[in-house]
Design a protein around this nucleic acid. Structure first.
Lengths: 200, 200
DNA sequence: TGCCGGGTGGCACTGGGTGTCACTAACGTG
DNA sequence: CACGTTAGTGACACCCAGTGCCACCCGGCA
């Protein structure tokens, strides 16, 4: 059903995704209609909405699989490591793309972080990530996933990750992994770079 | 223009806002159409969209004024206070509502944090907050607003604030101010509650 | 009286998203 | 070979958010 020698559905889905990424980057998210994407992919508007529940979802690739992988990585974490270190390592590993995939990733993230409509939509997708991370923290600390600490760790580590993505995207000088580690270090140490503020 | 003895515009705006909050809470955000709100407020759909650029914006009250106030509070901050403490104090003061306004605030925040569509929209409004906070951190540390640290502090403090709101909303046992302080303390100290994880 | 100008309502239009139906190609099974 | 079955698709109609446009009404003002 999901696999097979020639999965027609997966093929049109991939074509639509490529066309969407291309057109969004070229003309901007709002300027491109679902009809435009369907035409560019050689199919119909109706099929587009059968492959992606939303115009915005065409940008997100296999994000659900990434979240599932993050979940598995966190579950396999050794308990002798600090919680934040485990989360950081899992984030880094999930975002360890092959060099050949980096251009597509840049394109994707530039859209997600740059286009207001996609920025808004991202909140919904990130909520899944937060649930996974909060669950892990809850397991490790014996608290409920709805308590302050698990929630807070989940949202602020995700904040660190997206900030690292922004810096990586804008600067271009650093590796994504480096940016992630830098952000997580600040977070884990309570922002040491903020400590010596005015004192002479 | 914005004020006067009888500002007709402001009155219909207030009526629309009340009607929207009421209907959204009762029937859910997606189920209520702009026509429903306009009818309930005794005006027309067209007028609704002249008062609020988006259906979602009817929930946000005078959010722009709050952001401006946050900006002023941060600008008036004394330099002898740690940066995070200044931000926490400013957040607490901006969210120091009169007891009479708390029910409306609960209603508003329950919608914003609960309805997926409003959750998504919130990202756009919060971006203004982040800009303000990042600017403050940049000023205090001498970095550029686009650098890692100012961005990271802005997004993670906002994460702390929204998490505090969630806990306040769900639990109902604590004050909003208490929840904010608890979240900021965790953040400022690098999550001390996470430190002694499995040891011993 | 006539000339404004702001707030309004009606109307038509674009575009995202959904439900429904008919068509087609692949795949058995008799 | 004829047969139902099923998945993928395209076409059409529909709802609703949001926008541009225009006509209207009403309070001021010369």
């Amino acid at each position: 059903m999901t696999e097979g020698p020639v999965d027609v559905r997966a093929d049109t889905r991939a074509r639509l995704q490529r066309a969407a990424l291309e057109l969004f980057t070229r003309d901007g998210f709002e300027q491109v209609t679902a009809d435009d994407i369907a035409d560019a992919a050689g199919t119909s508007r109706r099929t587009f909405f059968r492959c992606f529940p939303t115009k915005a979802d065409a940008v997100w690739g296999e994000f659900g699989a990434h979240v599932a992988r993050l979940d598995r990585l966190l579950a396999a974490t050794h308990g002798d490591q600090p919680v934040l270190a485990s989360i950081c390592a899992a984030y880094v590993e999930v975002n360890d793309y092959a060099a050949a995939d980096l251009p597509t990733l840049r394109q994707r993230m530039a859209l997600i972080l740059g286009e207001p409509a996609l920025q808004a939509h991202s909140q919904v997708r990130y909520a899944d990530v937060d649930r996974v991370v909060a669950g892990h923290v809850a397991r490790r600390t014996g608290q409920a996933p709805g308590d302050l600490l698990p929630r807070l760790v989940a949202t602020s580590t995700r904040a660190a990750a997206t900030t690292a993505f922004e810096v990586w995207l804008a600067g271009g000088t650093t590796t994504l992994g480096h940016a992630l580690h830098a952000a997580f270090d600040q977070l884990a140490l309570g922002f040491p770079a903020l400590r010596p503020p005015p004192g002479s």
